[in-house]
């Protein structure tokens, strides 16, 4: 039984990155953002198809969003993920791709996540 996700994947799949939220977000933010992303993925919208992680852009799937929501609803698990999501970035992080434009009102979560990780947009 040694088939848990690869360590790198675990880092890149941090629920905060998957949902595009900052570690200080509220519980209702998690539900609202998760539900919105599930809806967007259900309609196969490109703007929801990827998310940024310290290891570069990763594909976002409904399974990942559900797992992320479940993890952040659990207080203890959330604490652990907050720790990982607030780690400094790797020594030479890959250059992030342009941030996708989001339509409509609501939070623009990615910008804050990048700043928290010490990245600057070129």
């Amino acid at each position: 039984m040694s088939q848990k996700p690869d360590d790198f994947e675990a880092l890149a799949d941090n629920p905060f990155y998957v949902l595009g939220l900052r570690p200080d977000c509220s519980r209702i933010d998690i539900e609202r953002e998760g539900q919105k992303l599930l809806g967007m993925l259900g309609l196969k919208l490109k703007s929801a198809a990827t998310y940024m992680s310290p290891l570069g852009p990763r594909p976002r799937t409904e399974d990942k969003v559900r797992a992320a929501m479940a993890a952040l609803r659990d207080h203890e698990k959330r604490l652990a993920h907050e720790f990982w999501a607030s780690l400094p970035p790797p020594a030479a992080p890959p250059k992030p791709p342009p941030i996708p434009e989001t339509k409509g009102p609501g939070p623009a979560p990615f910008a804050g996540a990048f700043a928290a990780l010490g990245w600057r947009r070129s």
Partner: peptide, 19 residues
């Protein structure tokens, strides 16, 4: 239009997504 929304929600301002 294809629609995605929560049929029941505790959130007072949930999202409706359409295409």
């Amino acid at each position: 239009v294809w629609l995605q929304y929560p049929a029941m929600s505790s959130d007072l301002t949930p999202h409706v997504v359409g295409r």
